[in-house]
Simulated scan of single mutants.
Amino acid sequence: MKKQTILLCDDDPVDRKLFKKYLGTVRPSDYLVLEAENSSELNNFLADKNVEADIIFLDYYLGAENGVDILRELRKANSAPVIMLTGRGDQEIAVECMKEGAMDYIPKETLHETDLRKLIRQAEEKWELERERDQLLGIAAHELRNPLAVILGYTEILQTYDELPAEKKSEILNVIYERSHHLLNIINELLTVTRVDKGIINLKKKQVNLHELLVKKVADYQLQAAKKSITILYNGETENAEAVIDRDRIEEVVANLLDNAIKYSPRDRKVHVSLGRTGTAITITIRDEGQGIKEEELKFLFKLFSSKKISTLPTGEEASTGLGLAISKKVIDAHGGEIAVESRVGQGTSFTVILPLTNRNL
């Protein structure tokens, strides 16, 4: 297992030695401690491409340097979570450090009685939550800006030109309607993300015929597919096709998979939808004949916030938040099921949803 890298910035060699001693009580083999006496040495470590810091312990008192100033610079660089080392009774300093973005603080005199492993884990979890919040805000700003700009632009045209032909007005109103609908979908996705990321998924389960559900969803997406001359083919079991599920949630999952299959397929291709049974489970498979996804990128598909970008893009410049698959996985997990993906570049992608047939949690 890869060791966690700790950057320890403290100008007192005795304090650094004591820190490593107390860290040694929590399995030293788990950690690699890199020592810095000042901000210059700390920055050298951070600039080194071979060093990937998991957490930074920063002394507030570094000779003539102020730990809070260093902390501010670290936060600007978004380097790693920072835990401040302070003196006993430095409550005001500790509060100041927390306001500037420190994940936590420890008075040095209490190091011997501190569960450092627990402190490190909590700081990293808090750091990850903050990163996810920032990423969500970034996604929201980016995804909402474009449709809003189009809506505002066309609204100004309608307000400025009174004598527009009826046909042109109708065309503009259709664009405004489509963009408004897209905007609502984005907002709903973002709201869903905040709920599922907190584990808040309230399922309203009942007995549902999945054959009927799929027939309906395939019909719903025929028009969208026809715009790219794509044919949706359905082949499903009509017998014993019932499962205990939250119908609305599973419809959202199927809709997302169908939408993706159409978005990422070139013109004149087929999308295959099938329904089957395997033992005590029922399976839904949606397979396209599109571009496919690189094998090394598959593991990032279901992550809500991943720094890794998927290189496959929609073929018709359709908009996508990239959140749908992550939401779908959370929904399927909540049902006690699984969602799997297989893909080959140039041949297409297949998603399989496996749902248990039992009525547990009903």
Rank of each mutant, 00 (worst) to 15 (best):
K3E: 11
Q4L: 02
P13Q: 04
V14G: 08
D15H: 06
D15P: 09
K17I: 10
Y22V: 01
L23V: 00
P28R: 01
Y31P: 00
V33G: 00
E35T: 03
N38D: 09
E41R: 09
F45H: 05
L46N: 03
L46G: 01
V51D: 03
I55D: 01
I55T: 02
I55H: 00
I56F: 01
F57R: 04
L58F: 00
A64E: 14
V68N: 07
I70P: 03
R72L: 08
L74T: 03
A77W: 12
T86F: 05
G87L: 06
G87Q: 06
G89E: 02
A94F: 03
M103G: 06
Y105I: 09
I106Y: 03
I106F: 08
T110M: 13
E113N: 11
R117Q: 08
R117Y: 04
K118E: 12
K118L: 14
A123S: 11
K126T: 15
W127I: 06
L129V: 08
Q135C: 03
L136K: 15
A140L: 06
A140Y: 06
H142R: 13
H142T: 08
P147E: 08
L148T: 14
E156I: 12
Q159L: 13
Q159F: 10
T160P: 12
K168W: 05
K169V: 10
I176W: 09
Y177M: 12
Y177K: 12
H181R: 14
I187W: 05
I187V: 07
N188M: 04
E189I: 02
R195P: 11
G199V: 12
N209D: 15
H211S: 06
L214W: 03
K216C: 14
V218P: 08
V218G: 04
V218C: 08
A226G: 13
K227I: 12
S229E: 14
Y234V: 09
N240T: 11
N240E: 15
E242H: 12
I245W: 02
R247A: 15
R247L: 13
R247P: 09
D248T: 02
I250R: 01
E252S: 05
V253W: 02
D259R: 13
A261P: 04
A261H: 12
P266L: 01
D268I: 07
R269G: 09
R269Q: 15
H272F: 11
S274P: 00
G276T: 04
I282G: 01
T283E: 10
T285D: 04
G292C: 10
G292S: 07
K294C: 11
F300E: 12
S306H: 10
G322E: 03
L323C: 00
L323G: 00
L323D: 01
A326D: 11
I327M: 07
I332G: 04
I332S: 02
G336E: 07
E338K: 10
E342M: 10
S343G: 05
V345H: 01
T352E: 06
V353C: 04
L357H: 06
N359R: 15
R360H: 14
R360M: 15
L362S: 13
